[in-house]
Nucleic acid binder design. Structure first.
Lengths: 144, 144
DNA sequence: CCCCTTCATTTGCATATACAAATATATTAG
DNA sequence: CTAATATATTTGTATATGCAAATGAAGGGG
């Protein structure tokens, strides 16, 4: 194995970005919700479990920047999937009935996505990898 | 653990994207090359090891779309780090002397990046995770 | 009650990245 | 050799995402 391959295999920045691109492609195929891209769906899910959550908490739970959350929420609001209510300096987000419905579909697609990649990567392997990535993110977010 | 956390931890699409964002942030801090963003550096490396490589092969090695490669190469050409030569319908890419120099610096930064995340995640853990992601990408690219 | 600081959100701008359509070149069938 | 097809690259357009600066709202000290 030459130096180049070594680097390509051992550099987490590279392998992680590449893997994320690959799995995103798969997710886009699976979550075919017209206007709602996969990343929005996670926001919907979190709002589902925390009605009235503040934007800041959302950012934290999703590990996204505040500006990104603003734009996500704007879009979801336009699609009438969430409502926004000012509360002092904070903004509180809640699902609409349409949002609830999208959430239900989302759960089904999620299972499909699971089985798509489990078929290729193996069920246990997928589960372990996901858990590992989750924990690694936590470590990075804590320590950097 | 509630349903929400389950999903957030077990969905590879989510954990992989999040992890990629976190590690990218770290890479951006480490690779401070002014105009050259981290993702370009891998292209430089591959060209270094395969002078005269075609654009298509580059796309394959980096797992990026052709359009992305066009824009990367354009930018690197403007920075005078690579040259482009038409060869029939293909385009062949080679490093310039400036490109070689950037490559040398890149190798140093790469080591820094390694040690940054190894400090947080552990050396062996990082290595294993990277290798796992590499292999998982290969599987996804082969089977989908 | 007003000013200053602090914190949450938004806006402006920039980058990475993709897909689909357009273009350019090469190859093959007739 | 020309027409049709195949392949590589480019361009138009769109999305996700971030940082830094601007804005807006709260609360404390005078």
């Amino acid at each position: 194995m030459n130096e180049e391959e070594q680097v390509l295999i051992h550099c987490l920045y590279f392998t992680a970005s590449r893997f994320a691109r690959n799995i995103t492609k798969l997710a886009e195929k699976t979550f075919d919700f017209g206007d709602v891209a996969p990343s929005y769906l996670y926001m919907i899910m979190i709002v589902k479990f925390h009605p009235g959550i503040t934007q800041k908490e959302l950012c934290h739970k999703l590990s996204i920047a505040p500006s990104t959350s603003t734009r996500f929420i704007d879009k979801l609001e336009k699609l009438k999937l969430v409502t926004k209510k000012m509360d002092g300096k904070q903004t509180r987000i809640t699902l609409t009935d349409d949002g609830e419905e999208v959430y239900q579909q989302f759960r089904i697609s999620l299972k499909e996505l699971f089985s798509s990649y489990s078929k290729v990567l193996g069920k246990e392997f997928s589960k372990d990898l996901s858990k590992t990535l989750h924990e690694a993110s936590n470590m990075l977010e804590r320590d950097l």
